[in-house]
Computed example of a mutant assay.
Amino acid sequence: MSQSLARALDVLDLVSRGVRTLDALAAEVGVHKSTVLRLLQTLEERGFVRRDSGHRYHVGPAVFGLAATALDAQDVRAAASPALRALAAETGQTVHLATYQDGVVSYVDKVESRQPLRMYSRIGLPAPLNATAVGKVLLAGLDEDERRRVVAATPFERFTDRTLTTPESLLDEVRRSAERGWAEDHEEHETFMNCVGAPVYGPDGRVAAAVSVSVPNVVLPYQDVLALVPALLAATARISAELGGSAPVAAPTSTQERTTA
């Protein structure tokens, strides 16, 4: 860990414990006031500390937001765990749980398949918005303005010949995914892998997470992966109920419909 980062974390910890003034913080950390001031200015710019009218420092809103996000993700993971493991056992395939925060979709849980061929994914890693089923599901759960803002900032890295590489194509696919209630990754991130994903709803009726089933195409052909959608939707419905949420009522759409990239 770098010395500056370590000192910044020490300063933040001290502020959280009630050390309020620049002089007191410098004395506790054991460095010159100018060094602590630079650290405080950076923390204040990022919202991790705030300064009141008396030039005393307090924990900032970013800390509470970070804690709330972590708790929310942990709550979703705990609620989803039994259904994820049951879905993996039923299908024999890799199952992911992902959440969204500030333009980033991250994997928060994973149940490995019984297959020897494994995905690159790992808990804590981000999922590309333009090339994963969970990314499309979570984009579909955003308000229209935020969705367009996030898509406009997406780097659109091309992973395979099927990867969506423009904002318009991604927004169209997200819209289709929202209408039918599930999304797909048809060899868009890895040439040998197909995935289907569906939303988990929280008590506020909004999308709280996404669950996906990922299958190597040497194990199941594309159409057979689509046939796993009913089991996936049953699992996400159980998780939503565990969280106190439920999916909105929508007209059923055939899982045999193939989307265009």
Rank of each mutant, 00 (worst) to 15 (best):
T91V: 08
E45V: 08
P167I: 08
T21I: 06
L232G: 02
G205A: 08
S81A: 11
G124K: 04
V11S: 02
R175G: 08
E157N: 12
P61L: 07
T260N: 13
S169C: 11
V49G: 00
L12H: 14
L66G: 06
S214M: 15
E144Y: 01
R50I: 06
R122Y: 12
V63E: 03
T160R: 07
V29Q: 02
R114Y: 02
S16F: 14
L171Y: 12
D13Y: 15
E187Y: 14
L232T: 02
I123V: 15
S121P: 06
E157T: 13
Y57K: 02
H189K: 08
L84I: 06
H58M: 08
A6Y: 15
V229A: 05
A88N: 02
D224F: 03
S177A: 14
G18I: 10
Q3N: 10
M1T: 10
R56T: 07
P126C: 12
A250K: 11
V49K: 01
G124L: 05
M193S: 00
A83R: 00
V218W: 04
G65I: 02
A209T: 05
V59Y: 02
V174M: 06
A88L: 05
K33M: 05
T236P: 05
H189R: 08
T255E: 12
F156H: 05
D185F: 07
S246C: 11
V15Q: 01
L171M: 08
S81D: 15
L139T: 11
L71E: 14
E28Q: 12
S2N: 13
E188G: 03
R7I: 03
R176A: 10
L22Y: 12
T69H: 15
S4M: 06
L87C: 10
D75E: 08
A140R: 06
L9G: 03
V225R: 02
P203F: 12
A152V: 09
V104L: 12
A131I: 09
L9K: 12
V105K: 13
L12Q: 11
T166D: 14
L164F: 07
A235V: 03
S4T: 14
T35I: 13
A210L: 11
E242D: 14
A70M: 09
L5P: 03
V150R: 00
L243C: 05
S53E: 13
V229W: 02
A133N: 01
P221Y: 06
L40A: 04
R38M: 14
Q101L: 10
L66Y: 10
G135D: 06
S4E: 15
K33A: 07
V95F: 00
A88C: 03
A261W: 06
P252R: 08
T255L: 00
Q256T: 13
A250M: 07
E90C: 09
S121V: 11
P167W: 14
E257I: 03
F156V: 15
L170P: 14
D75Q: 14
L170K: 01
G60P: 13
V63W: 07
L226S: 03
S169G: 14
G54C: 04
A251G: 06
V108Q: 13
A183D: 01
